[in-house]
Design a binder for these strands. Structure first.
Lengths: 175, 175
DNA sequence: ATGACTAGGTTCAGTGAACGAACTATCACG
DNA sequence: CGTGATAGTTCGTTCACTGAACCTAGTCAT
């Protein structure tokens, strides 16, 4: 969105948040990062985002301290983008948006999230209704729902078909 | 954002939600509507949004059932835009975004929200920590914080300086 | 050492959306 | 009959997104 300049006059934390995460694609990049996507190419094929936009978003999110660029191998040199506390702190907002979308516009259930400790489905803002507390993302298990395409074209979507804990890096099947 | 077409391939309720509310300005229009703004001109002066964009957003939100256009006087004919349940259901997501913005980027506290029943500050997703439940918006009192400009130029910002319940229509001081 | 391949970008022309100023329509009021 | 308010529409400019092509560094097989 490049909400930048105009939103500055808004005197509101919501506007402030949207200046950072309100641009097109940004929240989906963060969502993917929380799901365990870490590499440029994996974001690229999973989101279907233009390369230039992805590069710009990753750089901006890194500068804002929402992602962290980290060297994970030296030869050839390769970096991955991993979430920071700031990205994790966005999970309740993302969860609330997702629940709203599903309840008001969703035809089928695409993914469900449950608390690993007790198997209860995570509530609207990332809490476990049974345990009555917001659960850390490491304890959230993401499961494919009935509405999900069972044979997606891209390897990242295939990797996300298996039940997995959030934040755990995805394992992409080699070709 | 016009997130439209591309997000459709995303198979995700978050992407679905962003197709509706992810465009530039849209979430701020909904925020204002929840604060009690109802008229075209009030949105206009408070947001500083281009007229054409505001008209497009109001029409889209009406078509999506998030706002409802309602005739409030016949002569001259005047309509106002009032929130529906779909807009109210977005409150936890907006609250979560606002809290994230304040905690990670806010310098000062601009507004606080408290539960009218008990005076406790509303939590990150619209709940009252003392009452341990999500409180209806009618029971949320919005209060100006120390970071807010005490003498804003536009009448809508001035109207929002007084403590008021959410959803209650704003009262703009006549010139 | 040569060519193919991969990861992670940058560059660039075309397009679409946002911006801001000007203009229009309708009605009330004096 | 002119002025002012509300709620828009129109239009030229600017800016961001898009998709395709290109680039760089390093690995691997021949």
């Amino acid at each position: 969105m490049a909400l930048g300049k105009d939103y500055a006059t808004q005197e509101c934390s919501i506007a402030g948040a949207l200046e950072i995460v309100g641009e097109r694609w940004t929240l989906l990049v963060i969502r993917d990062a929380l799901y365990g996507v870490r590499r440029y190419k994996d974001f690229l094929v999973h989101l279907g985002i233009p390369r230039a936009v992805l590069a710009a978003r990753l750089q901006m999110l890194t500068e804002e301290g929402i992602l962290e660029k980290r060297r994970y191998q030296e030869s050839p040199p390769r970096d991955e983008y991993v979430v920071t506390d700031r990205a994790i702190a966005l999970w309740p907002a993302l969860r609330a948006l997702g629940r709203w979308g599903r309840e008001h516009y969703g035809k089928t259930v695409l993914r469900t999230f449950e608390h690993t400790e007790c198997g209860t489905e995570i509530g609207s803002y990332g809490e476990c209704p049974a345990c009555a507390r917001v659960v850390p993302l490491e304890e959230v298990l993401m499961l494919p729902g009935p509405g999900l395409d069972p044979h997606p074209a891209d390897p990242v979507s295939r990797a996300l078909l298996k039940p997995k804990r959030l934040l755990q890096p995805i394992v992409v099947d080699q070709v």
